[in-house]
């Protein structure tokens, strides 16, 4: 139980929620920054941050660049996590 509510897990949840809400309240630059920060703890979340920026502020005929950016940052974060776990990066 205490492991489930560990500080790291709480921080992950808080940052993930902030990353989802940031596109509604802040400019896209700040929202994407929060998303990248949250991706350090939960990599897939930045995909949704990018998607929200695309659907909220860009027309239906524009390419979803921010979703693509979110996928790229998410993959980078995921592989960095893996490399850290395998001690390739200390």
């Amino acid at each position: 139980m205490s492991h489930f509510f560990s500080p790291l897990r709480i921080l992950t949840i808080v940052l993930s929620i902030l990353a989802l809400l940031a596109p509604f309240f802040f400019p896209w630059q700040f929202a994407l920054g929060v998303g990248i920060l949250a991706a350090a703890f939960f990599p897939p979340i930045v995909i949704l941050t990018g998607t929200f920026i695309d659907v909220l502020y860009f027309g239906t005929k524009t390419f979803p660049y921010f979703t693509l950016l979110g996928i790229i940052f998410s993959l980078i974060s995921y592989f960095v996590h893996q490399f850290i776990k395998t001690r390739i990066i200390s």
């Binding site: 990599p43 995909i47 998607t51």
Partner: peptide
């Protein structure tokens, strides 16, 4: 991790389709 990525990508795709 792949399942989680898949779910998140699915949600993102859903929002993009809704946008369209």
């Amino acid at each position: 991790p792949v399942v989680v990525f898949g779910v998140v990508l699915g949600i993102a795709a859903l929002f993009l389709v809704l946008r369209l």
